[in-house]
Design a protein around this nucleic acid. Sequence first.
DNA 1: TTTGTATTTATGTATAGACATAATCGCAAA
DNA 2: TTTGCGATTATGTCTATACATAAATACAAA
Lengths: 234, 234
Amino acid sequence: MKHLHQRIRDDIEAKIMSGEWAPGHRIPFEHELMTEYGCSRMTVNKVLSTLAANGLITRRRRAGTVVAEPSNQQAVLQIQDFALEAARAGIEYRFKILHRSIEPIDAAAAQRTGLKPGTEMLCLSTLHVMDGVPLAFEQRLINLATVPEADKEPFKEDPPGTWLLRRVPWTDAEHIVRAVNADGPMAKRLQIQSGAACLVLERRTWQAGAFVTEARLTYPGDRHQLVGRFSPTA
Amino acid sequence: MKHLHQRIRDDIEAKIMSGEWAPGHRIPFEHELMTEYGCSRMTVNKVLSTLAANGLITRRRRAGTVVAEPSNQQAVLQIQDFALEAARAGIEYRFKILHRSIEPIDAAAAQRTGLKPGTEMLCLSTLHVMDGVPLAFEQRLINLATVPEADKEPFKEDPPGTWLLRRVPWTDAEHIVRAVNADGPMAKRLQIQSGAACLVLERRTWQAGAFVTEARLTYPGDRHQLVGRFSPTA
DNA sequence: TTTGTATTTATGTATAGACATAATCGCAAA
DNA sequence: TTTGCGATTATGTCTATACATAAATACAAA
């Protein structure tokens, strides 16, 4: 016999995912489920709260609980930290800062990040190399207003991403994944053919509303992929 | 005065994200937090359970609770359902089944899906068109052992993905995102230049361990991107 | 030393009740 | 008809308690 908690949850998920309870359908009240399963309200409540947190259902006081609109399917993709992954796998990892400067943010980037045009940003270009093979090229902007100590950091030990991850708390991130053809300079840096398909991952992170950093990572398409696993229940 | 629940949660998250409690650091026992905040164990327990579900902490019986290793950063990417998105945006959407057959699964696919080689699969190739522009090419395998009714479905109303989503409950999915150069036939189908970068999304779904379907979606790189938002707390 | 077993301990699940709160509904007053 | 207000109702949060369970620990037997 499984846990009641799990049984209630499985039942509801099955009904939603089979389409028996379509989006917008009102789910039985806690009171009703409580009678149906012969358990306390807390048990039902915890299940429904969890499902709501996972976006499967929408709850509103007085109105009750309904199956959520299948907004967009969500997939959890894992995005690796080069240094960490390399260390774990026992692979030789190096990185090289190819460019470093402090510049006022341009108009397009200001738009993306929500900063005032002209804000001073630390601009870094980094090549990530594993086992002697270029794995990714990283173009990064760091907001010096939020992370002033980045100015004096030489980035000798850790690459900028790892350094930031350890030092700056962040609360929100936005990701964009695209595919592009490598132009000449990019092809040269990554040692691939000009025009080869590359996976581009852009990540912007904020900390309590304050912009922290933007990273654009370009991976050779034939050497890399993003992998993710997703359970609606997890 | 905020809810106690939220306060405890904020405190713990702040300590973790500021680095004060580094990965591996043991968090006070429920018993201790209960005394510290002057509340019941259930309250503390719910907070910690939620944080554990979000991957911020790791809990083990008897051993206690520790700050989770920042394994891989996880990003929640949104993956759209063509028909649904088009309907919402008021865009004209069509799809065309270019190929349909029933074939025993090949060795490579058997490996990926965990099925026995030779299992009968419904193979479909579909072109998705929005506003007259090819948006994606879909190659899909459907496990007839799990979804026998797919055999007789003509897929006139809904494209295979939408049809399956409505009909088959699924519990697990695996995603892979890659970038590839379009070969000749693909370029022709998508009306792009041969060699143009394409985003390839592979999705495999299971239902309680039974394989349901595999979809490989190829998007022109210049027409599409995946977007995602992520908060560690949400 | 190794293996097996009992104990302890922290978390996991569940209960039955309490009060708070937000949103809706119905009714009455303007 | 519209506005305002009180009653109702479903969810939100929390308590105090109970027993289950997994895992570390200590101790005893082989």
